[in-house]
Simulated assay, not measured.
Amino acid sequence: MSQVKKQLICINWGSKYGAEYINRLYAMVARNITPPFSFTCFTDNCRGIRGEVKLEPLPELDFELPVTEKGIWPKCRLWNEKLGHLSGPVLFLDLDLVITGNLDDFFSFGNPDDVILARNPSNPLERLGQTSIYRFPVGKLLPLLEQFSKSPAEIAKSYKYEQRYVTRNAPNGIKFWPKPWVLHFRHHCRPTFPFNYFIPAKCPASSKVVIFPGDLNPVDAIQGRYHSDEPIRTAAEHIQLIFKAERKRSVTAHLRHYILPTTWVEKLWRE
């Protein structure tokens, strides 16, 4: 395992996530990997980032990124032919995931030339990958960037999510991580109704990473709320909203959208 080149990358732009997210992610990686490894952040703001993180500017684009409600299209910067000082396979990590187990196997699984994604459980009838944690060789996804640059608005509208675009167009196709390794918090960890009102979300022992696509993020899981823009409520208060006009969703959706505070996220998601 020590002979495997372990290169991890992340990307940060704008003001949504600060240095604390990058520092926290690095710390989780360092606690769950066999050295040596490198951790590189591509960012437009280097302030406050811990010294162990290698910093690179955001890869440049020669076209305007589309403004969309869905899909994190600025990630396409990482499809460039060159990524700073890096070469060969790199493992990309979202800033808001939680590392729950050892990461070494993510570097030895498959072949070095593979593009390997997590499975997206939100679309069970579609063979769709999830780019919250995925591995690819530097430069291999350049054809996707070149194609995207010709009609970014049309492609973003057609595919909706950049992960669908990668899934459908990666050269030589994609592979998936073994199912138990990467779990989706909403789909795999939180209890279904009515147990969500009595039992906190669980962290299966088989997992190595838990991802948080969509509205519910680690901060929400720690605090015990399903949507960041809604106040924290007790189970009784949440149920009482069924009978009030301020309820935003159908009764069934409202009852599903409740979680108790998740202590294991608080324990693991830290610097």
Results as ranks from 00 to 15, higher is better:
G48K: 11
G88A: 08
R127S: 12
K75A: 04
T68A: 08
G71D: 01
L93E: 00
F63C: 03
F92K: 06
G110D: 05
P74V: 01
I72L: 05
E126D: 10
L86C: 14
P57K: 13
K82H: 13
G71P: 01
S122Y: 15
L78I: 12
L103I: 03
R50S: 10
E81Q: 15
G129L: 11
F92A: 03
H85D: 15
R50N: 10
N120Y: 12
V115T: 15
V115E: 01
I116W: 07
V67S: 10
E64K: 09
S87Q: 14
G84W: 11
E81H: 14
G51H: 11
F63N: 04
K82D: 02
V115Q: 04
G129C: 10
L78C: 08
G110L: 04
G101A: 09
E126Q: 07
D94M: 05
D104W: 05
Q130A: 13
P74C: 09
L55C: 13
D105R: 10
I116R: 08
K54S: 15
R50E: 14
N120V: 14
F63Q: 04
I49E: 02
L125E: 11
L95W: 12
E69K: 09
L97N: 13
D104R: 08
K75M: 01
P121M: 07
D94I: 00
D114I: 08
R77T: 15
C76I: 15
P59Y: 04
E126R: 13
P121T: 07
L128K: 12
R119M: 05
N111V: 03
F63M: 02
D62L: 01
L128V: 05
N80S: 15
A118Q: 13
